[in-house]
């Protein structure tokens, strides 16, 4: 028998990271950021290809949510800081080795750009909207002339943001469950999948809907592939990684992960969409909502389980 116990000290949720150093704020933030990244990538990408009018939901309607979602994400990040009055210290340093640092700088740039991007599209969505000030109208008109440039910058920043949500975690060698190079692409892909769901919820036209269902299937497929790959990777890794994977394979987080995040949040919507493509009359909102909830659950579980995974000694 091996018995290892803490004689004294450390038995404190504030001290033991696996007892929640990061509560739900952080995973929710990661979810929202990746979602926004997905939304902006689709919108900007289609703009660059001059498909604004073919895909109004993706290009014009969805980005209107981006600033708000980013705002919530930022608020959550801020709420998670335990030494809030010093938050400005984030912007007195650029530290390339720290995903937290370049993540915050990405936020700093992408947030105003997302506002501009929304501004460009607001009148297309709400034609009756009266922008009271003429200077505002003029500025928006002026902006529109730089739309493609803006789209280019936004794509780069959005990919960075999406990757950041995964790399933030995977940079932590100390938490074996996060310590996988796949986490960055996985979270970016998940951001794109959830973004397709948002588009599908925003009354796309028929062609757009079909295209985005296909997109959702592609990205969800990639996501499933990456997830399985990630877990195989753990199992092929050191004892520490095997132990970490056990949290999801028979351990504490098995049901929530496989039944809810994977089953209901990924596989079921994929099946529903396939049925729909084959003619079943399934309201598109059902798989879309499942995908969004699934995306959130994925972050919550990975962050939570990751904090419980640890080196053995």
């Amino acid at each position: 028998m091996i018995e290892e116990l803490i004689v004294s000290g450390r038995m404190n949720p504030e001290i033991d990271p696996h007892l929640h150093a990061w509560p739900w704020y952080v995973p929710t933030d990661l979810f929202l950021a990746a979602l926004v990244a997905g939304i902006l990538i689709f919108s900007a990408f289609l703009t660059l290809h001059g498909k604004e009018n073919e895909f109004p939901a993706a290009v014009k309607r969805a980005p209107l949510f981006a600033p708000f979602l980013l705002g919530i994400a930022l608020l959550l990040l801020f709420l998670d800081l335990s030494h809030k009055l010093y938050f400005w210290q984030l912007y007195t340093n650029i530290r390339w080795e720290s995903p937290m640092s370049w993540g915050s700088w990405t936020y700093l740039f992408i947030t105003p750009l997302s506002v501009l991007w929304a501004a460009i599209h607001i009148q297309d969505v709400f034609p009756n909207l009266d922008l009271k000030f003429s200077w505002l109208k003029e500025s928006i008109e002026w902006l529109k002339t730089y739309k493609k440039v803006l789209a280019g910058i936004i794509i780069l920043l959005a990919i960075t943001l999406g990757m950041y949500t995964g790399i933030l975690l995977s940079a932590f060698n100390a938490r074996p469950l996060w310590n996988s190079a796949i986490l960055g692409p996985l979270f970016l892909t998940s951001g794109l999948t959830t973004a397709t769901a948002v588009v599908l919820l925003l009354k796309p036209n028929e062609k757009e809907e079909r295209r985005f269902i296909v997109l959702m299937l592609i990205f969800a497929g990639i996501q499933i592939f990456l997830l399985i790959h990630m877990i195989m990777g753990y199992l092929a890794g050191t004892q520490v990684h095997i132990e970490a994977a056990r949290l999801l394979l028979g351990g504490e987080y098995t049901t929530s992960f496989w039944v809810f995040a994977f089953g209901f949040g990924l596989v079921l919507p994929v099946v529903l969409q396939l049925l729909k493509l084959n003619g079943s009359k399934i309201p598109v909102t059902v798989p879309a909502v499942l995908i969004i909830v699934g995306g959130l659950l994925l972050r919550l579980i990975i962050v939570e389980a990751g904090q419980a995974s640890r080196w053995l000694y």
Partner: peptide, 15 residues
């Protein structure tokens, strides 16, 4: 200078 982001806590294998 610490903002309390707790990244360092997550990064420490020794808790």
């Amino acid at each position: 200078e610490c903002i309390g982001c707790k990244a360092c806590i997550e990064s420490c294998p020794y808790d």
